[in-house]
Design a protein around this nucleic acid. Structure first.
Lengths: 343, 343
DNA sequence: TTGCTTTACGAAAACGTGGTAGTGTTGAAA
DNA sequence: TTTCAACACTACCACGTTTTCGTAAAGCAA
């Protein structure tokens, strides 16, 4: 139950000053070899490690990155964290994670909590509620205090900062185009309510692909779902009417639910119904049939976001208050992973 | 680009002492009402918030919890984090997460990094490599420094500390018993290499259930897998021989792979092959057929672990160095979730 | 005036660290 | 003998906060 040893204690024990101890441990030439080695040996014996908090206070940098995401039990987000953590670790940073639970208030609270010195910078993805409200004052505030923020995936144009996104529109376009190429004409889009920025963009890509191929855009084929559990009814009704022969779903949960519903009704996938999902997750890979998806490498996004943030942090350090805020938006490439749910 | 305001700056601006500002903001009666209100107004205007790092240094507590887990892109672990975060948040704690990547060295490194003042206590699950090596010095060390540790799921008897586990043996027993009850006689166990503590326990439960029902324990029906990708071959060979009519898999990835393999061979699940998996995750729920599982509520484990840790942290605070280390091990209940993969 | 209490505030220490600027001693060159 | 440099070390400050202790000023009784 011995508390961690401090410079002061070592100093007292060896009857030298704190400075001497500190310098000895940092191998300063100011200290004579004899004393230096004695201190080092003593410190090693007691397993001295400098206190991070004291260092943070002194250096005004914590070497940790705050991550704020809507949820963590979520394949995409956890891969992003994984990606962030890899790069952070390489550079000696820790990550502290807060969950907004898709709530605006929690997002604000968490940001305020972390912004008071706990971290050097943020990597975040907006909560649904925040996107809905369009209130970003908490983020602006943090940025104004000189704390760098990198946003990913669920971003907003209302905030100027570094961003990492995928080209949702182009990716959706590619997916829908591939359905069209395989002869599908009645393509449904199963999406979320559209205030979530990415949902909107994917819808745009869907629409553009249809129009570019001379297929009329039919409002009835856009199925907006907020709750997965209720979607089955809607889907089965439409399937019953044979209203569509292909589906582009904005996430894999929707896709697998649709496939299950179709199977129950005796429809064959992909023969009777082709399915493509956004976000390549674990479900798509292991479901039966496995699902063709648009890959969206969370890991790469995380890597990139962390790199951008750390780069800014280290640069800031050098030239103090130089205001060269040339924010960039990185676009991570996507590609179609063909599996059994399409032909 | 204005930096966060500090007590000192407020003091200077209002021409009072730092102490006066501090006391005013904490509504101390020592300070006259006029001054107090003036300071409060000023602080509010400039959105003063005390610096967490300084507070941590002074109070010798960081109000954050370190979590060390093998991986994060993993349903079970992310639900645990979710559970921890809920409780932590309620009590004003943040969580900082480090990934050991199932590597001993990374686990040690991460623990050392966090142990130097960054956090108040640990919640962790051992990496495979650590379990294999049986080297727990890094954990002992942390505990000896008076930092509380709560282990969950992958624990060890070699360390004395609070633990949260499920009764792996009983749960496995229940699962196998239910297969026996439905008339299965040749039950295979698909497991990982057995130095991982939980794999061992589940095997024990499997064996006991068989023996209790007068079914001979057949070594050949225990299939040990380290890499998911290679298991398909082994499985298909055994299935071909009709060596078993039921499978108890220690995780859902194994289960779904087995089902896929069986389906390819024309076997019907559950008619020809019944399957039960450990760990109720997203795959089991959404695969076709959906998989009967032993629920293992990560969220509850996280809740419990966080509660135990925080309780210890707050207690410690009161009575300083009282050494009442009555460590407990909480067992989270499991239950069988019946789905389509069994009859 | 003296002595005492109350009010209202300030000084300083402490948490642990690291860097800058000394300080005193020794030895050697001028 | 003086002066200067090298050596080996210490003092002190700052980071931002809280808290303990101290004290000046004011009020009041004797």
């Amino acid at each position: 139950m011995k508390r961690k040893i401090t410079l002061k204690q070592i100093a007292k024990e060896l009857d030298v000053s704190i400075s001497t101890v500190s310098k000895s441990l940092r191998n300063s030439l100011e200290i004579g070899e004899e004393t230096r080695l004695k201190v080092q040996a003593f410190a090693k014996f007691y397993n001295y490690k400098p206190n991070n908090i004291a260092l943070s206070l002194k250096n005004r940098k914590t070497k940790s990155i705050g991550i704020i995401i809507p949820e963590i039990v979520h394949y995409f987000f956890s891969t992003v964290i994984n990606g962030i953590e890899q790069v952070a670790n390489e550079h000696g940073y820790s990550v502290v994670i807060c969950l907004s639970d898709d709530s605006f208030d929690k997002e604000v609270l968490n940001m305020e909590m972390l912004a008071n010195g706990s971290i050097d910078g943020f990597i975040m993805s907006l909560s649904k509620e925040t996107q809905f409200k369009g209130d970003f004052h908490h983020i602006t505030e943090v940025i104004n205090q000189g704390m760098p923020v990198v946003m990913f995936d669920r971003v907003t144009n209302d905030i100027l900062c570094d961003k990492v996104i995928i080209d949702d529109k182009a990716a959706a376009y590619e997916a829908v185009q591939s359905l069209i190429d395989s002869g599908r004409k009645k393509i449904a889009l199963v999406t979320t309510v559209d205030y979530v920025s990415v949902g909107k963009l994917r819808t745009d890509g869907y629409e553009k692909a249809l129009l570019d191929n001379g297929i009329p855009f039919n409002e009835d084929l856009i199925i907006k779902i907020e709750d997965v559990d209720t979607c089955e009814i809607t889907i089965s009704q439409l399937l019953h009417d044979r209203a569509f022969d292909a589906v582009f779903a904005v996430n894999e949960l929707f896709a697998v639910t649709i496939i299950k519903t179709a199977s129950k009704m005796g429809l064959k996938v992909p023969e009777d119904l082709a399915v493509i999902a956004f976000t390549d997750g674990i479900i798509s890979k292991y479901s039966t049939p496995s699902i063709t998806t648009v890959s969206q490498s969370g890991e790469k996004m995380g890597n990139k976001a962390a790199k951008m943030l750390i780069e800014r942090l280290e640069a800031e350090h050098d030239d103090d208050e130089e205001e060269n805020e040339n924010y960039t938006t990185e676009v991570i490439e996507t590609h179609l992973i063909k599996r059994e749910s399409t032909d």
